[in-house]
């Protein structure tokens, strides 16, 4: 697409990430229909999609900011708040649900003292629920970052949390 130079906003967000995003957009044949790809890229770079990033994308490809905002809020994959160091995803697919994953999810909420989509105060954990990760044979399933824990019991919950707490304090 034609090179449109847009100054990154004055914010605490790293300037070089805006530059990377900018050159990614320039490398596309066309920005027509590419908003979702661009937002995926932006979320990869920044970890989330703060207002400033959304505005930057809107100005760069020349569409109303409201349209960008509308797309970001529509899709659950996009998040507007920063993620914790580790993301705990409890599978709430049907296969996991019938094997009691809601109790596991509840236990994580209580032990971490946060709700779904929230991050602990120390910034260590974000809690999520996901739908079927394809490991139904191991239901109920919990994923921490990329690592999958299968046949999780209520007793395992504390243990999983502590593994990452310990790792982090070293």
């Amino acid at each position: 697409m034609p090179n449109v130079q847009i100054e990154p906003p004055h914010s605490d967000l790293p300037r070089e990430k805006f530059e990377q995003l900018s050159s990614y957009i320039d490398s596309l044949d066309t920005a027509r229909g590419a908003l979702i790809e661009i937002l995926h890229k932006a979320q990869d770079l920044f970890g989330y999609l703060p207002r400033d990033v959304q505005l930057f994308v809107a100005r760069k490809i020349g569409i109303p900011a409201a349209e960008v905002f509308g797309v970001v809020t529509f899709y659950s994959y996009f998040t507007t708040s920063p993620k914790g160091k580790h993301t705990i995803s409890v599978c709430m697919g049907t296969a996991c649900f019938v094997k009691g994953s809601d109790e596991i999810f509840q236990a994580f909420k209580e032990k971490l003292n946060i709700n779904s989509q929230e991050t602990t105060k120390d910034g260590l954990f974000t809690l999520n629920n996901v739908r079927c990760i394809g490991a139904c044979g191991l239901a109920p399933v919990v994923m921490v970052d990329e690592k999958v824990y299968g046949k999780v019991t209520l007793e395992d919950v504390e243990h999983i949390i502590n593994t990452y707490r310990k790792e982090d304090s070293i």
Binding site: R32, I36, L39, V71, F74, Y75, Y77
Partner: peptide, 25 residues
Amino acid sequence: KYGAGAFVCGEETALINSVEGRRGE
């Protein structure tokens, strides 16, 4: 083209809206 976590995008007309970069309605 990548989806972004919306069940309704499996429905073909919603899917097409999403492929065009819009809300998948």
